[in-house]
């Protein structure tokens, strides 16, 4: 174990680190620890009962299932959008590229009401789906649509820079060796962008798990059917069931921590892959 820090001639270490730690503790760490301390007021069996009632289990299934499906759709189409933006030119490309970040910038409540208006039975899109028997708004499918919207930029923005840095020589070599375009994509390009793709998927998934604003408008929020876990926390809070709300929050916090750890590992993998290929 070396010294806590290496010597540097630059000033301001104590002030900068001290302020950083104080601020982070006051705004982030102490409040988060409050959830864990408060939930310790429940015994373990009590905690387990609260977080595994049928209604709660149904909300996990919906939250995880819809988040996974939305992240998967975003992985497929995010890769396609990144590919089209990097490789091809078409009118309005710059505008499209800028608008991909819209879900990061648009408040979730706005996204929620806009998607509901579109996908409701009388909406621009819903009116064509309803006769086919496809109900989107006020069903679990609506949750999927909202989560697809908010996760859309992640895969595009993780895959795009890797595609840009890809050396054309590799593809030319593959073509020279007689590979078809599809073979080149599957054997040369896809392995190179795969870590970034998985990272983008994980980011979209993690974001979707905790999402609230855009979902509650379009979901219909029927218990056991279209009720997501974050909404259940709010419901319990409104019934003054603080212990129940806190227990569910702790479950969600632990899921967040695990996902954060996985994403950190994936980003390390992604970085080592892209640096070793250069």
């Amino acid at each position: 174990m070396g010294p806590f820090r290496q010597h540097s001639v630059l000033p301001g270490f104590n002030l900068a680190l001290g302020f950083t730690l104080l601020y982070l503790s006051l705004i982030v760490l102490i409040p988060i620890s409050a959830a864990f301390v408060r939930t310790a007021e429940l015994t373990l069996p009590e905690f387990w009962d609260v977080v595994t009632t049928p209604r709660v289990l149904a909300s996990y299934r919906l939250t995880f299932g819809a988040s996974f499906a939305a992240a998967l759709l975003n992985a497929i189409f995010g890769l396609l959008v990144a590919w089209v933006l990097v490789r091809y030119s078409f009118p309005g490309k710059k505008l499209v590229d800028a608008l991909v970040d819209l879900p990061f910038a648009l408040p979730t409540a706005v996204a929620g009401i806009a998607l509901t208006a579109l996908y409701a039975g009388n909406g621009w899109i819903g009116q064509y789906l309803e006769p086919l028997g496809l109900k989107i708004a006020f069903t679990p499918a609506g949750v999927f649509v909202a989560l697809t919207f908010i996760g859309l930029p992640f895969v595009v923005r993780t895959v795009q820079p890797v595609l840009e840095d890809l050396e054309p020589e590799l593809e030319e070599a593959a073509a020279t060796l007689g590979a078809s375009r599809l073979q080149t994509f599957l054997r040369v390009i896809f392995p190179a962008i795969f870590p970034a793709l998985v990272t983008g998927f994980a980011l979209a998934f993690a974001r979707a798990i905790g999402e609230y604003g855009s979902v509650i408008f379009i979901a219909g929020n029927m218990p056991m059917i279209s009720e997501i876990t974050p909404l259940l926390i709010i419901t319990k809070l409104e019934q003054y069931d603080y212990a129940g709300a806190t227990a569910l929050a702790v479950v969600m916090l632990m899921i967040s921590f695990v996902l954060l750890l996985i994403i950190n590992l994936l980003q390390g993998w992604s970085r080592s892959r892209s640096s070793s290929s250069v």
Partner: peptide
């Protein structure tokens, strides 16, 4: 430290509000 700075990004907004209610 860098991971902790990123922490609020990975926490559900609902949980972010709840922890302040708990305090």
């Amino acid at each position: 430290l860098v991971t902790l700075i990123d922490l609020p990004f990975s926490i559900s907004p609902v949980v972010s509000g709840l922890i302040y209610v708990l305090i």
